[in-house]
């Protein structure tokens, strides 16, 4: 979903750059205060590298089109939403600067869509689903998959909204919205599958490192201690 230069006009690109800047600075503060410590920092580097690698793997979704992981929900569940925004920002900067993927004037747009909308829709959906399911570590994986699935069409809708404001071509917006959401619902299925695979493999070996499992693990720890005391 990397927006190239020229799709959106200059004022819109400037505005999304502002949104992205505020979002990234807030994420720096949030990640430092609440998410990163000696144990979890190494995982953040791995998540960034993994998201980059997986974004290279376009999978076919039919009719001559393809999709790839955005990775926002995946990163948020593993290392926390603020750190996830930072991971996606590093990935998007590297792609734009080194690999000519995603425009330079569109870097703010791409950080906003994938690093903020993708991450936070994925994370908040994950938390919402987690609250509905039994409080078990095993429930982290399905909750992450739902968050991942929803994050893709919502990010696509975000692009449609930006295009409505500052698109460079006079095109029917309803057609744009239908096509974007339709294809990205399909891509969302791939996002959910890859996210479930990645999250379940970390949950299987080190659930204590998974940010999205922290609450569940802490509660279980308390229960065990009370039993010991009794």
């Amino acid at each position: 979903m990397h927006v190239p230069d020229g799709f959106l006009d200059a004022p819109t690109s400037l505005a999304t750059a502002g949104v992205a800047a505020v979002g990234v600075v807030s994420a720096l503060v949030g990640a430092a205060r609440r998410e990163l410590d000696d144990r979890t920092a190494p995982l953040a580097g791995l998540v960034a590298a993994f998201v980059f690698a997986t974004q290279m793997l376009n999978f076919p979704v039919g009719a001559g089109t393809s999709g790839h992981l955005l990775g926002g929900a995946l990163a948020a569940v593993l290392v926390g939403p603020c750190t996830a925004t930072l991971c996606l920002t590093v990935v998007l900067l590297a792609q734009a600067l080194l690999f000519a993927d995603g425009g330079l004037t569109a870097i703010g747009t791409n950080i906003t869509l994938m690093g903020l909308v993708g991450v936070w829709v994925g994370w908040l959906t994950f938390r919402g689903v987690q609250a509905l399911l039994p409080r078990r570590v095993g429930m982290v994986v399905p909750a992450a998959a739902v968050g991942a699935f929803l994050s893709v069409p919502v990010a696509a809708l975000g692009f449609v909204a930006l295009y409505a404001v500052g698109g460079q071509a006079p095109i029917p917006l309803d057609r744009l919205a239908t096509a974007m959401v339709g294809w990205h619902l399909l891509i969302g299925v791939g996002e959910a599958v890859i996210t479930a695979l990645a999250v379940s493999s970390i949950v299987a070996v080190r659930p204590d490192l998974v940010h999205g499992a922290r609450k569940v693990l802490q509660q279980r720890e308390l229960v065990v201690r009370e039993e010991v005391r009794a």
């Binding site: 430092a32 990163l36 410590d37 920092a41 190494p42 580097g45 791995l46 980059f52 930072l86 590093v90």
Partner: peptide, 15 residues
């Protein structure tokens, strides 16, 4: 590159 920059940033920010 992404692993080094991402990991380095996280390492600098960590508590």
């Amino acid at each position: 590159v992404v692993g080094l920059v991402g990991g380095g940033l996280a390492w600098l920010l960590r508590r």
